[in-house]
Amino acid sequence: MDHNLRYIAGCVLLFLLQIMVANHIDLGPYIFIGLLPLILMHIPATTSDALRMVIAFALGLLLDIMTDGVPGLHAGAATVLGALCGTIYRNRINTDWRNDSGVPTVRSIGPGYALYAFISTLIYVSAYILLECATIRPFWFILLRILLSTAVSTLLTVIIGRSLFRGR
């Protein structure tokens, strides 16, 4: 299957998975599962930050519309990740990105994939939780929610990413 088609199919699947998780799976007040970073992490490295942000915003907004949450939450958090993840990938995770196809895959990133997943998930989950409940909830609640949500979401991201975006 063409790589681009695989990528698009993987994104659609992830999107549907996120909607299902957001609408039907409740793990309590402390755990929020965010799978959107998995899509944004694998946008080709040659994509400009501006376009990456627009894609992130659009995906986040679509997710907001199709779930029961507050519109703007996923969009805002995804925009923050879209602004940063391209820079993180190019400057920290895979500085040799120009010599491969430029599409981040598990194989091209190598052992740094878990770190990349962790950083991206942390940014997205923190932005989402802070937008949702900053100044409303106590500090310890927010901190615990960020830590637990990041841990669970990172684990899921690595597992699903290795399946969907292994690369050649």
Binding site: M53, V54, F57, L61, V70, P71, G76, T79, V80
Partner: peptide, 16 residues
């Protein structure tokens, strides 16, 4: 890029 980020986040905050 920075201005675009501010614009998108502003739209998100307005929606929220």
């Amino acid at each position: 890029t920075i201005l675009l980020f501010i614009a998108l986040e502003t739209v998100s905050l307005l929606l929220i």
